[in-house]
Amino acid sequence: MTSALKVENLAKTFEISGGLFGRNKAGVRAVRPMSFEVPTGETLGIVGESGCGKSTLARMLVGLLEPTEGTIEIEGKALDNADPAAFGRLIQYMFQDPVSSLNPRKTIKQIMEAPLKRLYCMGKAERDKRIDEIFDSVNLRPEFLERYPHEFSGGQAQRIGVARALAAAPRIIILDEPVSALDVSVQAQVLNLLRDLKSEFNLTYLFISHDLAVVEAVSDRIVVLYFGSVVEIGKAEEVFANPRHPYTKLLADSAPVVGRPLTAPEQKDSELPDPLNPPPGCAFATRCPRAQERCKKEEPVLEPVGGDQYAACFYPLQD
């Protein structure tokens, strides 16, 4: 089976020009070299806290940002967005903020028609038919088509966002925090819809979120990011139930769970490392209870830690 998406040594450094004429160029390494593969039909979850490079990674995958290093392969071919129409048919992106991703001055119909016109050059009758089909599959009423984005609630707007991504009939959809702006009771509706659509259209998902429980519930495998690097990859049911990297464990312990007493899982004064002045060695070492001298000098790489699980740690947790 070919993989839908393959990333090798992908990295992004944002240059910050300092000095009068931009001489002293400093860089923020938003995404450090990372490699992973997503087989067709899989949902790969990506979790991490703010500033860990989740969105930068997503924007590189859909060609909205140019990677500094590394390659992205989509269905066996290198990412090539020279022809926007061909590229848009392969991969689509679903945005975090459902309302701001819809142009406030356009009707839903105009928004829905854009991908059909640009990517598939469909005629009017054909477009109308296709939009009806898509609206049907995401449970939206056809009379919404004449309305403007501000008339919709977050849940409805997010469903319109799903509909737009589907209109492109892509192979892969990158979902960037698709439910974090929604209420809990509506969030489950959208997640279940996404799951149904995936099997209906045989899609591959990359599901990015900061909500561990949501990612776990929808993903096959999960990638944990910290400070721009992959610290752990593994099966969804394993990663949080049986974390090997101390950071993953910290995340899992921090999530509020009914019935667990309230304790701060780490020292109260810890802060994230400064991206402009990254520490040498493992970025998590300063917060890590297991850190040794070696962690502060060398950068650990991903290594198998049993089964399909990989962790970037010199002293991984054992079960």
């Binding site: 909205l64 848009g88 992106y93 945005f95 142009n103 640009r118 737009r164």
Partner: peptide, 11 residues
Amino acid sequence: EFIDAARLAGM
């Protein structure tokens, strides 16, 4: 984001 969305719609 809607500008990004337009770009991905092939505009």
